[in-house]
């Protein structure tokens, strides 16, 4: 009789082990699924960067040319300098910007240099949020209006 009881106990174990394993795995997956919407809806860094990069083109304090009215998208060449951009875009210690104004030559300005230098680490999506966009712009240089590109690369430490 004792052998039979031992046999039954080990048989019970054989049945319950896979069940417990299945339960643990399923519980883990369910918990992961539930937290997905939560993580995403607090992720506003990309939205913030999209809004911030547009300031360079929409705001007359930044680059927008003003001839009595604000011409969003037309860059006043005299405004593309470090001093003016640092003033109109006071980046906090988490955000860095790299601006490239491309005509027949390339002019580069970095805002918050310390952070802008980390743009090479944008592959690390866990710690950095990066955005990059190239605008087709018109550049007003005294009397002359020429076309060019403005690339805005932005990085934010999460």
């Amino acid at each position: 009789m004792n052998k039979k009881a031992q046999f039954e106990t080990s048989h019970e174990l054989i049945i319950w082990i896979p069940r417990i394993i299945a339960l643990v795995i399923v519980a883990g997956i369910v918990f992961f699924l539930i937290t997905l919407p939560v993580k995403q809806s607090f992720e506003i860094d990309k939205l913030q960067e999209t809004i911030l990069r547009q300031r360079f083109l929409y705001s007359e304090n930044c680059l927008a040319h003003n001839d009595g009215k604000v011409n969003s998208g037309i860059i006043d060449k005299s405004k593309f300098n470090q001093k003016n951009l640092d003033k109109c875009f006071e980046a906090n210690d988490k955000i860095g910007v790299n601006l490239n104004l491309i005509t027949d030559k390339i002019e580069t300005i970095n805002l918050n240099q310390k952070i802008a230098e980390k743009l090479d680490f944008c592959f690390d999506k866990k710690h950095f949020t990066c955005t990059n966009y190239t605008y087709y712009v018109l550049i007003q240089d005294e009397k002359k209006l020429e076309s060019g590109l403005l690339n805005v690369a932005m990085i934010k430490i999460k």
Binding site: A22, V38, S41
Partner: peptide
């Protein structure tokens, strides 16, 4: 367990996604 998981996921989808539409954080 299968039935239980189905119920939980359906309920959490309703609570966190469907009902979330009125929730403010989704309007940011």
């Amino acid at each position: 367990l299968s039935f239980f998981v189905l119920i939980i996921l359906t309920y959490s989808y309703y609570e966190l996604v469907v009902k979330d539409v009125e929730d403010k954080s989704s309007t940011i």
